[in-house]
Write a protein that binds this DNA or RNA. Structure first.
Lengths: 231, 231
DNA sequence: AGTTTAGGCCAACGGGTGTTGGCCAACGCT
DNA sequence: AGCGTTGGCCAACACCCGTTGGCCTAAACT
C-alpha cells in the first residue's frame, strides 16, 4: 500500500481551537529570514477568515510537532506536509522557505507574569510554575529549544526570546542594571536545562517528576538567582 | 580555484600534542557492524603505533570540532575529512559509518572526583569546578550535548553517560536509593543547562561569566540538590 | 634487489532534500 | 450562465549527502 486512503485536505478537518497565533506573511527572503509577523493588520475589521487560513494553521501545528520531535534537519517539509494532509509545495507557497516556516512556527509569547506585583518570596516558584504549564501545554518551546541547539540560526531566535521577554521580566525584581543580565541568564540556564533533560534528553528521573516536585526543587534555585545577594 | 594547495596528508602534520584521550576502538555500540581494522591486539606489547593512528586521531579531532560547531546533520563527512586533510572514504574505512565516527568521537570519561572523600560542604563547588574545566579544555562535551539535542540516537548516548558516570558519583553523597536518581537529574539539569546557555546558545551574559563567578553561583545550587533535605 | 601490504585517492551511485513552474478543480462574483 | 480568482496537486529539477569499489603509491619485509 502506498498510504493514500485519506485525500481529505486540511480544511476538511476541524480547525484546531488554538487562537490563530501565526500570521506568516511576506515570507520571501533569502538572507534575512525573519518576516514581520503582522505587517498590515488594521486593528478594526479583522480579516474575513479565508478558507486557506485553516490550512496555514494545520501546517504550523504539524511543523511544531515535527520540529519538536525531530529537530530542524530531520523535520522534512515533506513529512510536515503529509501530517497536515497537503502538498509540500503548499508549504512553500505560504511560508516561502523552510526557514520561514520555522520562524512562523516558533514565534511564541511567554506571557510572563508581572513579577513586581508578587510577594517577594514567591517569584521563583511562580516563574517555574508558569513556565512549566506553558511547556506542557504545547510543543512550541520544545521545538524552539531543539532547533536552537542545532545551529547558530536557531540559537539567535532563542537569544531574542531571552532578551525581549525574560530579561525585562527579571528587571522587575532586581533593578541593578549590571546584575540583572547575569541573574536572568542563570535563571535561563536552570529553566532551559531542566526542559532539556525532561523534554529533549528524556532522562528518566527528570521525566518522572511531578509538577509539585519540580516547583519545590527548582523554585528556590530561581528565587536565589533572582533575589539573593550576589556571592 | 578549487582549494587544493595542500595535498599533505594527515600524518605529515605534527601529531597533535593532545594526550591521546580517545581510544577510538570498537566503535560499534548501537547496531553498526564495524569491521575492526586491528582485530588482533594482544594486551601486552603496546601496539607499535602504526602510521595510520595519527590519521585516525586527526579524523576524530576534526569530527569533534565539526560536531560541536554544527551539530550532527550539518557536520558532513566531507567537511570533517577536509579538515583532517584526507579523503571522505577514509572515514568510512576507519569508522564504518557516520554513526560509528560519532560514537568514537564522543566517548568521554568525565573522571569525576570521589565525592565521598571531600568535605561535605564543598562537593557542589568541586563538581562545578571540575566539570567547567573539562568543558573548556576540549569540545567533546559540547559535541555530545549538541548531538544529544538533535535526536533520540544522540540522546541515548547522553543518557548512558548520565547513568554510568554521574549517577554513581552522586550515590556517594546520598545513599538513599530513591532520592539519588532525582538528585542526580537535578544536578544534570543545572550543569547541562548552563553549558547549553554558554556553549550552544551563547547567551551573552552566560558567556561573559568567569570561572569564579560560575562556581560561586552554581556551586550552592548543586550542593543543595545533592545534600539538602528533600522539600 | 623484489614482493607484499597498508594507506590513500578518485569517481561514481543511489537516495533524499528544498524548491519551482505548470496544470487543474472549486468557489465567488456579476 | 460565464469568468476570474483562490486553493491545491503533480512532476520534475538541481543539489548534497553517505557510502562503495577500484586503482595507485609508498612503505615494510625478506
Amino acid at each position: 500500500m502506498t498510504e493514500k486512503p485519506a485525500p481529505t485536505p486540511a480544511h476538511t478537518r476541524a480547525a484546531a481551537p488554538t487562537p490563530a497565533d501565526a500570521p506568516a506573511d511576506a515570507p520571501t527572503s533569502t538572507s534575512a529570514p525573519i518576516p514581520t509577523p503582522t505587517p498590515a493588520a488594521p486593528p478594526d475589521q479583522p480579516p474575513p477568515r479565508r478558507r486557506s487560513d485553516s490550512t496555514r494553521e494545520a501546517i504550523v501545528v504539524a511543523a511544531r510537532e515535527r520540529f519538536a520531535a525531530d529537530g530542524y534537519e530531520r523535520a522534512t517539509i515533506r513529512a510536515i506536509a503529509r501530517d497536515a494532509r497537503i502538498d509540500p509545495s503548499m508549504v512553500m507557497r505560504y511560508y516561502g522557505s523552510k526557514e520561514g516556516l520555522f520562524a512562523a512556527a516558533v514565534s511564541v509569547d511567554l506571557r510572563l507574569p508581572d513579577l513586581g506585583t508578587l510577594p517577594r518570596g514567591e517569584v521563583g516558584e511562580a516563574l517555574v510554575s508558569h513556565l512549566f504549564g506553558l511547556w506542557e501545554s504545547s510543543d512550541v518551546l520544545t521545538a524552539m529549544l531543539r532547533v536552537a541547539s542545532a545551529g547558530p540560526a536557531g540559537a539567535e531566535r532563542m537569544q531574542a526570546t531571552f532578551r525581549e521577554q525574560l530579561l525585562p521580566a527579571a528587571r522587575q525584581t532586581c533593578p541593578d542594571p549590571e546584575q540583572v543580565a547575569t541573574r536572568a541568564a542563570l535563571v535561563a540556564s536552570q529553566l532551559l536545562g531542566f526542559a532539556l533533560t525532561r523534554y529533549v534528553l528524556r532522562l528518566p528521573p527528570s521525566v518522572a517528576l511531578s509538577r509539585a516536585e519540580i516547583v519545590a526543587w527548582l523554585g528556590p534555585t530561581v528565587q536565589r538567582y533572582l533575589t539573593a545577594p550576589s556571592p
